[in-house]
Computed example of a mutant assay.
Amino acid sequence: MTSAGGLGDLIRDPDDAIRRMDEWAAGFARKAERYAAAQQETERLRLTATSPDGTVKVTVGADGVVSDLVFSSRTRTIPPEELSRMVLETMRKAQSGITDRVAEVMGRSLGDEDPDTRAVMLDSLRNRFPDPDPDPADQQDGPDAEPEPPAATPPPAGGAARPPASPPAPGGPASPPQGRRPGGIDPDEQDNNPW
Rank of each mutant, 00 (worst) to 15 (best):
R30W: 06
E33W: 02
R34V: 04
Y35I: 15
Y35D: 03
A37R: 14
A38M: 00
A38G: 02
Q39I: 07
Q40V: 08
E41R: 11
T42Q: 09
T42S: 11
L45M: 08
R46I: 01
T48W: 07
A49W: 03
A49N: 05
A49C: 05
T50E: 11
S51Y: 03
S51R: 03
P52I: 02
P52V: 07
D53N: 06
V58Y: 02
T59Y: 02
V60N: 01
V60P: 01
G61Q: 02
D63Y: 02
D63P: 02
D63S: 08
V65R: 08
S67P: 03
S67K: 12
L69S: 02
V70C: 04
S72E: 03
S72G: 08
S73P: 12
S73C: 06
R74M: 14
R76N: 12
R76A: 13
T77Y: 14
T77L: 15
T77S: 15
T77G: 15
I78G: 03
I78D: 00
P79T: 10
P79W: 03
P80I: 08
E81R: 12
E81V: 10
S84W: 12
L88F: 13
L88P: 05
M91Q: 14
M91C: 10
M91K: 09
M91Y: 01
Q95K: 04
I98R: 00
I98G: 04
T99L: 00
T99D: 12
D100P: 04
D100M: 05
R101L: 06
R101S: 08
V102Y: 01
A103N: 03
A103Y: 00
E104L: 11
V105I: 08
M106K: 09
G107W: 06
G107L: 08
R108S: 11
R108K: 12
S109T: 05
L110A: 02
L110E: 00
G111K: 03
G111A: 05
D112K: 08
P115K: 02
D116M: 10
D116F: 09
T117F: 12
R118A: 15
R118T: 14
V120F: 05
M121F: 14
S124V: 02
S124C: 04
L125V: 00
N127M: 14
P130Y: 07
P132K: 04
P132Y: 06
D133W: 11
P134S: 07
P134R: 06
D135K: 05
D135H: 07
D135G: 08
P136H: 07
A137G: 12
A137L: 15
Q139G: 15
Q139I: 15
Q140A: 15
D141I: 14
G142L: 06
P143C: 09
P143V: 15
P143Y: 12
D144I: 10
D144E: 12
D144M: 11
E146V: 11
E146G: 10
E146F: 14
P147F: 09
P147W: 06
P149A: 10
P149M: 08
P149E: 14
P150C: 01
P150L: 10
A152I: 11
A152Q: 14
T153G: 04
